[in-house]
Design a protein around this nucleic acid. Structure first.
Lengths: 246, 246
DNA sequence: CAGTTCATGTGAAAGGCTTTTACATGAGCC
DNA sequence: GGCTCATGTAAAAGCCTTTCACATGAACTG
């Protein structure tokens, strides 16, 4: 993948040859460890072994670099969600839950992208390219919600898919933002973010009339389906429920 | 309240007299308009009419000022939630929903506090005072959840209150972060954040077995209770549901 | 009331970051 | 070989943060 960086600039020659990419990678690393506010244009340049002015040949300013990272983040995000959704296979409900897990997994494993996308203060709405990428990612959730809504129990009126999608997005984003990051600066939980979100989504779907006590073909015995509303100490590997720990 | 600021420094004399407070207010304004990252220690000093070094007599550094704002924010937040909860009057469910609305109202009307609290990248967990304030605020939600859990329908097993509280917090925070801010840099919605959250919470509660189709004493005819799961074009003043607007 | 003390503010300076501008280098192309 | 243009450099201006020695004056003390 990288084939000619990270060498003393003596061997590098005057031209870097891959600076734009090197800057993006450097910035990604810096954001991961110091947050989107702590990242510095000059630092990225230093890390790539070029002068502080060199990055301006590739990005108008610091914000444009940040936008590029957010852009790329939304693209990867969309790819992850698409893969998780897998067009609803093997069944809509379990694929839907996979999407939720993928959301959390992205926030956890790509904190730098996630920060750039959602916490950098970038005006997403004012950047058409970025906005489009963001909407493509949300589109996956909406498509999934549409398929799910079509499955709504026969008797009841069908829930609006757009609303469902927004609800699912809010839940995922809320859990991810408050508890889902790998970094230390988050709150302690009596259960994993994944379990928290899964229970929440199941309760929500049940509220829409979906039968969620399904325990389908038991295709994966390694992950016992949690009992969302009641059973208390279910499969959660963490501490017991109601311990306030205050 | 303020009684001797905002005058040419000629009249002010050598000592400001109220600098700490003035700095907090200035910072609050700056954060509101430029985000927690855009706010500058020097700007706050200038706005208060003192030299750039003066703030260091009141805050160890820029981060401590930010922490103070977050701290104050959590305190106000707690107060708002407490008032909204009103110890569960007149009935637990409607008080509960008022808490959700108060969460959104805070995010919307106090964007500067909200940013400092949740988006400034401050390590809340590492600041005991801040952590305590944050937990006091969350405590209101937890207390409300506990009262609500106690009301769970008789037949079913009682849902864990802590989990409910975390779910409600996630939903509120997700909606507020994604759609709830007054500033421009957020996404468009086919409905108000308030309606979106209310529907979500109602569906969630129904999923836990609560009867949510209650239409109580109709104490306030001005706000028609939305039909959460179905009826589509309910009382929402915005556009129709399913219009993707893509 | 005079004198002292100490919190609070000032000015200057060091060091870093951002961004611009003129100039240097060399890769790709006749 | 010589041109051209993308890419990098050096230097400089301007702003921010933070520190340090020093100034001011409000409050206390006798």
């Amino acid at each position: 993948m990288n084939w000619r960086k990270e060498r003393g600039r003596a061997e590098r020659g005057y031209h870097h040859g891959n600076l734009k990419e090197a800057l993006l990678q450097a910035a990604l690393g810096l954001i991961a460890e110091k947050g989107p506010g702590g990242f510095t244009f000059a630092d990225a340049a230093r890390m790539a072994g070029v002068s502080p002015a060199a990055p301006y040949r590739h990005f108008r300013d610091r914000d444009e670099l940040l936008s590029s990272i957010a852009q790329r983040g939304f693209e990867q995000f969309e790819a992850q969600l698409t893969q998780a959704w897998d067009d609803g296979r093997p069944d809509t409900v379990s694929a839907f839950e996979r999407v939720g897990k993928a959301y959390l997994a992205f926030a956890r494993h790509e904190p730098a992208y996630y920060s750039a996308m959602f916490e950098s203060g970038l005006p997403v709405d004012l950047n058409p390219t970025l906005l489009a990428a963001s909407e493509r990612a949300f589109g996956i959730i909406r498509a999934a919600a549409e398929r799910l809504a079509a499955l709504a129990p026969p008797g009841v009126a069908r829930p609006p898919a757009m609303m469902m999608a927004l609800h699912i997005w809010s839940m995922s984003h809320g859990v991810a933002s408050l508890f889902g990051r790998g970094d230390a600066a988050r709150r302690k939980l009596p259960m994993s973010p994944e379990d928290l979100l899964e229970a929440q989504v199941l309760i929500y779907l049940r509220g829409l009339g979906f039968p969620t006590d399904r325990r389908p073909p038991a295709k994966d015995p390694a992950t016992p389906p949690p009992v969302p509303s009641a059973g208390a100490a279910s499969g959660a590997p963490s501490g017991p429920w109601g311990a306030p720990k205050k």
